[in-house]
């Protein structure tokens, strides 16, 4: 496994918050189960199941964050961008710099709060994302990738 650059530790905060925010969606099945119990006398067990899901899914996600952090990283060389993500479902992408069409920097509210930026790398067929890096690193990354990409294209 190549030696990878780790993401900044602040990304863990954004993961924690987004895990909790995503859990809000799980309120919907719970509300549904309660209403169904009130109006159509569905079995009480549905309320329990949805309530357990509401607690368990974010709990598992939160518990896995240190592992996820450890297994997420990127490496940028003149020829390649290598990205790795995931703990249970692991993924390692290799993108030749020569194939990169454009690089987009993105920042949602959570990332802005933590002063991070996501880097989206687009080829003619695929899109890859580095979930979050510090602002000036993001700018550097964009510069580096675009620099390498145009250099390779000039060679070709």
């Amino acid at each position: 496994m190549p030696k990878l650059q780790q993401l900044p530790p602040q990304i863990k905060t954004t993961w924690r918050v987004s895990a909790l925010l995503n859990a809000l969606w799980l309120l919907l099945p719970l509300a549904g189960a309660i209403l169904a119990n009130l109006f159509w006398h569905w079995h009480f067990i549905f309320i329990i199941i949805t309530a357990i899901l509401l607690i368990a899914i974010p709990a598992v996600q939160l518990a896995l964050i240190p592992y996820r952090y450890h297994f997420t990283g990127y490496e940028i060389t003149p020829e390649f961008v290598i990205l790795q993500t995931g703990f249970i479902f692991r993924k390692q992408d290799t993108i030749p710099t020569a194939r990169i069409q454009n690089v987009t920097l993105e920042q949602g509210p959570l990332l802005r709060w933590q002063h991070l930026q996501a880097v989206r790398i687009v080829t003619a067929a695929t899109t890859h994302t580095i979930e979050g890096v510090v602002l000036d690193v993001a700018d550097n990354l964009r510069e580096t990738i675009v620099h390498f990409a145009s250099e390779v294209q000039a060679d070709a």
């Binding site: 703990f87 249970i88 479902f89 692991r90 993924k91 390692q92 992408d93 290799t94 993108i95 030749p96 194939r99 080829t123 003619a124 067929a125 695929t126 890859h128």
Partner: peptide, 30 residues
């Protein structure tokens, strides 16, 4: 080849197995 991706679950990692995805441009799709 636009990019390649190796994927494995934690269980596949134990058995040293991995999926390999190769991305090729085709029409406006991949």
């Amino acid at each position: 080849i636009q990019a390649i991706s190796q994927r494995q679950t934690i269980w596949m990692a134990k058995r040293q197995l991995s999926h390999l995805n190769v991305f090729i441009r085709s029409g406006n799709h991949v």
